[in-house]
Write a protein that binds this DNA or RNA. Structure first.
Length: 643
DNA sequence: GCGATCAGGT
DNA sequence: CACACCTGATCGC
């Protein structure tokens, strides 16, 4: 839950994403997107009563959010009081105190947030200045630069405060692949699986209510296979999504859910109950989209215990593996791309056109209703961003993943996640080692030489339950997410980002208030205290610290940066895999690997001092070994690396 | 019975 | 342990 309590300093009479407590008095409400943790109090009796008494109070949100909200009958009492605002259409709103008659005007503009269908950021302009509330968002590099309403002329608007979601504004998320990278990775993984036979099924382990539609539509378009979901009535007026999902369980791609999924998978059964096709048991892999997975794990647990047997099954020598892993784990390598070091946060260089996929297989027909041809895209999520990624960063993340094998919970980065998840799974199911040799995932396949690795961070968990072979692993998982919180400016604890220790940013991140008023640039941040510390941060400092030494010299452009910073965080999705593969599957997956990566954010986090960046060939080799289950002995190519 | 909170889980 | 939930127990009304 967000630490943001709903109100902004500049416009305290409006409430955003919180509807309880003091927010019951608000003159107007704003909902950035339809995730439960941003809807606290929204259907409480107290608010309902307030509405009945205060006829001028409205809820403002995007048209898609309104649609999603009203699909749930619990919120139908809002129906007459919701005002859907078009994206990027400044709208003046009168904030009226019904008791005193006092009135204040504010202009709000909705900006696409890219977090889930309908998600937006709110830009407020009024007598108390211009402020931006980001909500949960995921913007690709360059997207902020494209937003006309954040600019005036060639300059960035003078934004007084940014209420920023800082969930991923943490050094441990030093590399989150772009949506496109992740998507491509998932597509290849799914392709490699479902083409094996009609009995090879992919299950997408989606946690949140919304936010995966982008994945569904792309999978569906790519393979001509609709994705099975529990319900789709909320998308009844969104043909672009509706076409790609189905309630018909007879499909190879599932995103259905059940409260007790694990039980189902233990029985080699999908959450929708399907267990076989024509009497033939299914081979299921699960893919868990997750952003959190990209975070650097710090806990070291006894995963090693599980890893050993695993390694043994692949090769004779086990010992050598651990040390390297430990070392690697500490490596936080992030390559700073020279050309990305533009001091200008609003980088125009990446203004690639938003790509909209054209269905290559229209074999299926729309499930319900009459399809409207116009592609009304849900803002954000449906727009794949094309980002360029560097090989190095992916590799480094691979390493990290590899390292992660030590941890009990599998969470890693990038494509490497797969690897991690794999091990993580094994941890949970130590008994299955016999089958391990059969189940070796060959991740190479998903890391092609060409740079088409996906971007939204999804993690594959390949779990394959299945027949012939073994009932092995189910999914392991991790989570991901983005979230938001606010902050106000009294902070007690603070830490300087420049210290660069992940501890300094403990996980209580949320929404942070960035005020450009204070240009002293003292970057304080949330602390581990658990309390939601609110901090006043100046954007310029934020930029500097985050982007590292690179621009110390540069003249910081104050406001330009305010907004840019926002593009830092946002949801991502990862892929982690667990699976057991047959010989055939292994062969299939066994391809050449070469990783490409692209940087996905507008700025980069500097690498940890004194850490040696792994060489590409080295990583390549390492990765290849990992994929084939060979023992891994890391040679010290550079003084710093481990043995 | 409902809501809110907490604990615990994925 | 961040996410975005879900379930179940407990308490209060």
């Amino acid at each position: 839950m967000s630490a943001f309590e709903g109100r902004m300093v500049e416009y305290p009479t409006i409430s955003i994403d919180r509807f309880d407590r003091q927010n019951l008095m608000a003159r107007a409400y704003f909902l950035s997107h339809c995730h439960k943790d941003h809807m606290k109090g929204l259907r409480a009796p107290s608010l309902k009563r307030r509405l009945e008494c205060s006829l001028k109070v409205h809820l403002y949100c995007s048209p898609v959010t309104k649609e999603l909200l009203l699909t749930n009958s619990r919120y139908s009492f809002w129906e007459k009081r919701i005002i859907a605002l078009e994206i990027e259409t400044p709208t003046q709103i009168s904030l009226i105190d019904e008791a005193s008659g006092e009135k204040e005007e504010v202009v709000v503009t909705l900006l696409p947030a890219g977090h889930c269908p309908g998600s937006v950021m709110f830009l407020f302009q009024g007598n108390n200045g211009t402020v931006l509330y980001t909500g949960d968002f995921r913007l690709a590099k360059g997207e902020a630069a494209r937003m006309e309403f954040l600019h005036s002329g060639s300059r960035v608007k003078d934004i007084q405060s940014v209420y920023l979601d800082t969930t991923f504004c943490d050094p441990k998320y030093y590399q989150i692949p772009s949506r496109m990278e992740c998507l491509n990775g998932i597509l290849e993984l799914v392709r490699s699986w479902i083409t094996l036979s009609p009995y090879h099924i992919v299950w997408l382990n989606c946690k949140a209510a919304y936010g995966y539609e982008y994945l569904f539509t792309n999978l569906s378009e790519e393979f001509g296979t609709q994705v099975h979901v529990n319900k789709l009535d909320m998308f009844k007026n969104m043909p672009d999504i509706l076409y790609h999902i189905t309630t018909d369980r007879h499909t190879q791609i599932h995103a259905c859910r059940h409260p007790r999924v694990e039980e189902f998978f233990r029985g080699n059964r999908l959450p929708c109950g399907i267990t076989s096709k024509n009497g033939t048991p299914l081979h299921i892999i699960s893919i868990k989209p997750s952003t959190m997975w990209f975070g650097e794990r710090t806990r070291k647990t006894n995963v090693i215990m599980s890893l050993k047997p695993l390694c043994r099954s692949f090769s004779k020598s086990t010992e050598a593996k651990y040390k390297p892993l430990g070392m690697l784990k500490r490596i936080r390598t992030t390559y700073l791309e020279p050309e990305d070091e533009d001091e200008d946060l609003f980088d125009d260089s990446q203004l690639m056109p938003l790509r909209h996929k054209i269905p290559n297989q229209q074999t299926f027909k729309p499930p319900l209703l009459s399809p409207k041809p116009e592609p009304q895209e849900c803002p954000g999520q449906l727009k794949p961003n094309i980002a360029s990624c560097r090989i190095d960063s992916v590799e480094s993340s691979l390493l990290t993943n590899f390292v992660d094998c030590e941890e009990s919970n599998s969470e890693d980065e990038d494509q490497s996640e797969i690897v991690t998840s794999f091990h993580g799974d094994l941890n949970f199911l130590p008994l299955q080692q016999q089958e391990l040799d059969v189940d070796i995932p060959e991740w190479k396949k998903f890391f092609k030489n060409n740079a088409d690795i996906p971007d939204d961070g999804s993690e594959y968990v390949i779990s394959s339950t299945e027949a012939g072979t073994s009932q092995s692993p189910r999914l392991f998982s991790d989570s991901d997410g983005d979230s938001t919180h606010i902050s106000s400016q009294n902070s007690s604890q603070s830490t300087h980002i420049s210290e660069q220790e992940s501890q300094s940013w403990d996980s209580q991140s949320d929404t942070i208030l960035l005020s450009s008023q204070e240009r002293n640039c003292d970057f304080t941040f949330f602390n581990k205290s658990g309390s939601r510390v609110r901090e006043l941060v100046t954007t310029c400092q934020l930029e500097q610290n985050i982007s590292g030494p690179k621009d110390t010299s540069s003249d910081v452009k104050d406001r330009a940066q305010d907004v840019n910073t926002a593009s830092i965080s946002g949801g991502a999705t990862t892929v982690s895999c667990e699976k057991d593969a047959t010989e055939e599957e292994k062969n299939l997956l066994n391809l050449s690997t070469s990783v490409d990566s692209q940087s996905s954010s507008d700025f980069e986090i500097p690498s940890t001092p004194d850490v040696e960046l792994p060489k590409q060939e080295h990583l390549q080799l390492l990765y290849a070994k990992l994929a084939t289950g060979e023992s891994i002995v890391i040679e010290r190519k550079h003084s710093t690396s481990s043995s």
